[in-house]
Amino acid sequence: MTAVVERIAVPTLALLASAVLFGLLLAIYARVDPLEAFALMYQGAFGTWFSWQNTLTRAAPLILTALCTALPARMGLIIIGNEGALVMGGVAAAAAGVAVIDAPAPVVQLAMAVAAMIVGGLWIALAGALRQWRGVNETISSLLLTYIAIALMNHFVEGPLRDPSSLNKPSTWPIGDQNMIGTITGTDVHWGLVLGIVACLIVYVWMRFTTWGFALQVIGGNPKTARMMGLDVGRYVLLACGAGGAMAGLAGMVEVAAIHGRANASLAVGYGYSGILVSFLARHHPLAIVPVSILLGGIGASGGLLQRRLDLPDAAVVVLQGILFVAILASETLYGRLWKPKEAA
């Protein structure tokens, strides 16, 4: 029982502490009434049906990119190349969509999703493989791969895949309106949200009820034990990283097929980085990722309102995310210290 209370109390404390710190920053530096700012943020995130839809639309890619950190984290790897996998997935999806543009819409969408998942999966699996067989630190390599991915995207949208009519913002050819993923009936929220929630459910079942998922946890808990049990660690590294990368790639596909209609620099707007934060806030638990993504999506959605009403820089939201991240990590130390365990001697 204590454990459950603790798992709710500690993150809540961290959330409150971040809110206080952020409020102080607003009050002292920006001379803005923090209570007014928080009220506005609530308004912009969850206040109206319109802002709810905005929030949920932003939550969709966060759910998918968060899985890119969460899955490898289950076996003790810290992958932060989510943004790169998202970008590569988006470019691959656009390329695949354009290649089969005249096929029926479901076929085009399937081709886009498969292409994005394969490319995104390979992208992160590469970081996992380098870790497993060359001992290269996966955190650094996956972030370097992100910079490479963005350079590759720039190369493709400026060169081989460029639509000559996209003058101001170099982009790939459009995938065609008829091939776009529609919105959930009665809302402006696209189906990517459902895709993300289903993905989280699948990952949860996979982790919780299959031997593969169990093997992953064993490796995360103690790699030496895992090896002695005869588990092929390398295969599971590829599997976890590949599956995580595929999810981030899918996020890129959703952004292309539901929002932009083509791949361009708008793909790299930081969903990947926020996804890292979501995963850590959710303690890498697939089911916790959904509500945390909605919370973070809400913070992101409220940025515009803060900017318009209080004249705050758009980075205000990023600052809050950063404070939240550090506070949550620092709060790890509180576990087991708030209450004394019963059997303590």
Partner: peptide, 28 residues
């Protein structure tokens, strides 16, 4: 200071501070 607290991961804290400092720099 944060990393010295017991059970805090220094890699993750580094990522967190990277995000925070970048955001703060853009904000200020």
């Amino acid at each position: 200071g944060i990393c010295q607290l017991p059970r805090v991961n220094d890699i993750a804290t580094g990522i967190g501070l990277m995000l925070l400092a970048t955001g703060l720099a853009f904000f200020l």
